[in-house]
Design a protein around this nucleic acid. Structure first.
Lengths: 199, 199
DNA sequence: GTCTATATTGAGATAGAC
DNA sequence: GTCTATCTCAATATAGAC
């Protein structure tokens, strides 16, 4: 058992190094030699810890979906207006990006590439669950008259996710302040960019 | 000269077939054999028309930047409020997506991949020009008090482009009506999704 | 658990016949 | 201008010694 733990350490180390490379250049453009170099192993030695290169990707993304869904579910829990709920959903997205930047970057990068493979269908299932959480909150907001009725909830969901999907590309905690950005964002989404009618 | 024209026909045919594949699966995951199959040639024969595979990508994207910038410049020409200008910019984006769906899809797909190569720096230069067009319109709108002053123009530009960048992924002219979507979008951007204060 | 060495495959590209 | 045939190289993966 103690031995097993040590093995897992190595696995995690490899997965972390590979994750950084996958996020940066994509899975296809990262070779097993690149990964080996990062952890100080010959590429062949990686195969003692993972069956295939794709297996490393599963090792990285495998458990992350549940973590993500849990975050969004928690954010959508009863409490406050629909607008406050959406704000919490935005925050949840940012926190996920801050705490798991590689996973988030890989998620976006590979959606239309590697994750089209049937063996990665669980990724799309996760995204569907998250979409339902968002749509439910938006629809509830419309019923409560806190959100305009003449919008398409799935359309707004897509707008939000499209924007959030690019967060890993430009978000840098050293130059941006999370709270500021989320507020800016929420304001833009809720008030729009148009000037108030009664100036 | 007549001969030259025929050669160009073949080039265009190859570029078109390759473009569809690049847009669908990405450049990296499209082989020269795939391209050859599409046009009924052996892969080796492609090299009579293009020096390299990457050269086909240049053939596709090479002239498109100027077309794009011209579209956006036309949309930003004086006339109407800043809001009307932005609406025209949105339309320009949609039209580009309708008329050149492959080029637009490739543009987005390869931005963080192939187009990082120095030989594709012209792609980023094109995007910078487009960003300036947007930012100028937004800043003008703020000066004219048609757009809220407490927003960051580059931030709003990024929001818009992020959303537009995903258009090729889901836009289908058979199920969506362009005008409707643009209106929906513009309204969401300008009015926000929040309910009017005075219901 | 890691290394040496190598098998295997797939992709881009080329030479020369037709 | 296209085909046949092939080269070359890079990448995943494996076998067996240490």
């Amino acid at each position: 058992m103690i031995k097993r733990k040590k093995t897992d350490e190595r696995r995690k180390q490899i997965a972390a190094a590979a994750g950084a490379l996958f996020a940066e250049r994509g899975v296809r453009d990262t070779t097993v030699r690149d990964i080996g170099d990062r952890v100080g192993l010959l590429s062949g030695s990686l195969y003692h810890h993972f069956k295939t290169k794709t297996d490393i990707v599963h090792g990285i993304m495998g458990g992350y979906g549940e973590d993500l869904v849990a975050r969004y579910e928690r954010a959508a829990l009863p409490g406050g207006t629909s607008i406050e709920k959406l704000r919490r959903l935005f925050h949840a997205c940012f926190e996920a990006n801050l705490e798991h930047p590689d996973e988030e970057a890989i998620l976006i990068r590979e959606l239309d590439n590697l994750f089209r493979e049937p063996e990665f269908s669980y990724v799309h299932e996760t995204l569907s669950k998250i979409e339902e959480i968002f749509v439910n909150v938006i629809e509830e907001g419309i019923r409560r008259r806190e959100i305009r009725a003449n919008i398409d909830p799935r359309f707004v969901y897509r707008m939000m996710m499209d924007v959030m999907g690019t967060v890993p590309r430009w978000y840098d905690p050293r130059t941006h302040h999370e709270a500021e950005i989320v507020d800016h964002w929420i304001e833009t989404f809720f008030q729009g960019i148009g000037a108030p009618i009664d100036v």
